[in-house]
């Protein structure tokens, strides 16, 4: 049983690939799914391990890093300041496309609002003013339109395809 005034509580999370993470309570509570787990099981023992069957260790480590930083920003009253933007920019710079995808799927499953906002914004920025071919190649998506279907949609929006970046 948790008691008030107790020292730092640690939450145990277990990933799909069997790794056990020890996370500070405020950081773990950023995950809506973990929070509601404890809301619904108020009498859960302190050493309860919360299973996360849809998340593997690598994205979870990345998410913990992000949330930990943001929890600290909030505690220091730095939320919304340049410091945060700088951290976010650095954070995403190191991530490959594949890692970005794993992160967003995991963040979505764990239901972390702040991180989801940030990741969807990042993806939207990577789409802006790009050609369809570029977007497909960038995200590794196979074109599943028939040539006729694609032609029909393109024709409808002909005017939209002038002056896109070819990078």
């Amino acid at each position: 049983m948790s008691k008030l005034g107790q020292a730092k509580r640690i939450i145990f999370l277990k990933t799909a690939d069997g790794q056990l993470f020890e996370v500070d309570e405020p950081v773990a509570m950023e995950f809506e799914i973990v929070k509601s787990f404890f809301d619904e099981n108020e009498d859960a023992a302190d050493d309860t391990v919360v299973p996360l069957p849809n998340v593997s260790a690598e994205p979870l480590a990345g998410i913990i890093e992000f949330c930990k930083a943001h929890v600290e920003f909030r505690a220091n009253g730095a939320a919304g300041k340049d410091e945060v933007k700088k951290f976010n920019a650095e954070y995403i710079k190191e991530k490959s496309n594949e890692q970005l995808k794993e992160l967003i799927l995991a963040a979505n499953y764990l239901n972390i609002k702040e991180m989801l906002d940030f990741l969807t914004e990042t993806i939207a920025n990577r789409l802006k003013n790009k050609s369809v071919e570029y977007v497909r190649a960038f995200f590794g998506i196979e074109n599943d339109f028939t040539p006729q279907e694609e032609e029909a949609v393109r024709k409808e929006y002909e005017w939209a395809f002038e002056g896109v970046d070819e990078d």
């Binding site: 939207a124 789409l127 497909r136 896109v164």
Partner: peptide, 15 residues
């Protein structure tokens, strides 16, 4: 989070 209509059109044509 997209701002331009063109970007939505591009988005539509991906798959």
């Amino acid at each position: 989070r997209l701002t331009l209509y063109e970007d939505l059109v591009t988005f539509s044509l991906v798959c």
